[in-house]
Design a binder for these strands. Structure first.
Length: 415
RNA sequence: GUGAGUGUAGCCCAGAGGCCUAAGGCGCCAGGUUGUGGCCCUGGAUAACGAGGGUUCGACUCCCUCCACUCACCCCA
């Protein structure tokens, strides 16, 4: 027997109400904030992610699905959404649109990881990207978009972690300070951190090993090394978030796993931990468009994990409205009546009434049993007698009462 | 990549070397006399007990290997 590939799941009918709920809220929020939907391919040139997310990051080095297609092109399954949107922005000359250009997507991301709760090899993200401005007001608006999205779904007990990691001017200075600090304490840190010290210094702060905590806690903070423009930007952002009434905490150790981030980084975390600690995150990426061959273009955005959001919805027991189902069941007795049932079901549907038609030749008992187990409230029964009389039995399954009515009146009676 | 736990019908699970030709519940199908569901009753279908190898007179039950799933680490959504 075949199984879904490791780390992938079937989203079964009974799960679909959650997905629709989340996707509708996302679309609504985007409409409110002026984001337009974009859908980018699931596959991209592998180089796009190498360049943007960055070689040396876990995502590119060990989690990306890359393959050669039959034409010899190096392709990759998208591990995240921002790079694709930026590629599309450039490819379609969106720098000629009024800036900032605001785009959103809902699409699948692929990462080759060991699956566990809230973590899959294919997961779906809702992401927003606002490209073409470095105004801190845009950062604030983007964060507000994400925050209001969670609120609109009635998810509570969330925490917004914020940090600024500087720009290409001030970050090198900071990284030097970080190195000095870690070199001084080199004997106290774990093996991974010794690797990070050389390969991915920013991520030193991210280490969760107890033994590394003292060193990480006392490490220099990026916000203390921001250049004048970056510092002002971060101040403004915090002020704007205050204006918007969004609670946040500056986390000096918040670092994200993509190389393209500059200045603002943020993460939305469930308060009780769980769901892998992060429901979504984002930040500013002022160098990315240029890195991809465009003119220097500032931008900011986020990606939120829908699978994890749904886990939260369930954990917080949030009701999502069930999907509409057919309300009418058409049952019949005998072959002649079957013809009439087929015509009747079709005509009701053409009148906008959802119908489940009895299929096969089962006893009336079995047909009604099916109607009952499908929780359909009204049954229409056509037998030989009704056929002759041009009538039909309309049965109310909840009250168990029924009446004989002319077939022509059904559409209005069932409306 | 590392570590731990689990693997018996569509689902939940009992069984712990022979009494298992594998039990029960849910679900599914059919019947309980004429053309009527939900409750109840009766019957039925569905499992080579994750796969392969080994120990044994005998293995679903013990051992080994593999695979899968789950959870955790890493990292992230």
């Amino acid at each position: 027997m075949y199984q879904a590939p490791r780390g992938t799941v079937d989203i079964l009918p009974q799960e679909q109400a959650y997905w629709r709920y989340v996707e509708q809220k996302a679309a609504h929020i985007c409409q409110l904030y002026g984001y337009e939907r974009i859908d980018t391919p699931a596959i991209e040139d592998a180089g796009l992610f190498n360049r943007s997310v960055g070689e040396g990051t876990d995502i590119v080095d060990k989690e990306m699905y890359t393959f050669d297609d039959r034409g010899g092109n190096k392709l990759a399954l998208a591990p995240e959404g921002t790079a694709s949107v930026c590629r599309a922005y450039l490819e379609h000359g969106m720098q000629n649109l009024p800036q900032p250009v605001k785009l959103y997507y809902i699409s699948s991301m692929f990462r080759y990881e060991r699956p566990q709760a809230g973590r899959y090899r294919q997961h779906r993200q809702f992401g927003c990207e606002a490209i073409g401005s470095d105004d801190a007001a845009l950062d604030a608006e983007v964060i507000d978009t994400a925050w209001q999205f969670y609120l609109s779904m009635n998810i509570s007990q969330l925490f917004l972690a914020l940090n600024s990691i500087g720009c290409k001017e001030c970050r090198p200075v900071y990284l030097n300070a970080l190195r000095e600090h870690y070199v001084q304490h080199g004997d106290k840190i774990c093996v991974d951190c010794n690797v990070r010290l050389v390969k991915n210094r920013m991520r030193l702060l991210d280490c969760k090993k107890p033994s590394c905590q003292p060193v990480a806690d006392t490490a220099p903070k990026s916000v203390d090394y921001l250049c004048q423009p970056c510092a002002e930007h971060f101040d403004k952002l915090q002020r704007y978030l205050g204006l918007l009434g969004i609670p946040f905490g500056v986390n000096h150790r918040l670092v994200r796993g993509f190389d393209y981030y500059t200045r603002t980084v943020f993460e939305v975390q469930p308060q009780g931990g769980g769901s892998q600690g992060s429901l979504g995150g984002g930040g500013r990426y002022d160098g990315l468009i240029e890195e991809l061959g465009g003119k220097p273009t500032a931008a900011v955005g986020f990606g939120l994990g829908i699978d994890r959001i749904i886990l939260q919805l369930k954990e917080q027991k949030i009701d999502v409205s069930p999907l509409a189902k057919p309300r009418v069941f058409v049952a019949f007795l005998g072959d002649a009546a079957r013809d009439e049932a087929i015509k009747l079901a079709a005509s009701l549907r053409r009148n906008g009434i959802g119908v489940i038609q009895a299929i096969g030749s089962r006893s009336l008992k079995a047909q009604l049993r099916q109607a009952n187990s499908l929780a359909i409230s009204r049954a229409v029964i056509i037998g030989e007698e009704e056929l002759k009389a041009g009538t039909v039995i309309l049965r109310d399954m909840t009250s168990a009462s029924q009446q004989t009515v002319p077939i022509a009146r059904l559409p209005e009676l069932l409306k």
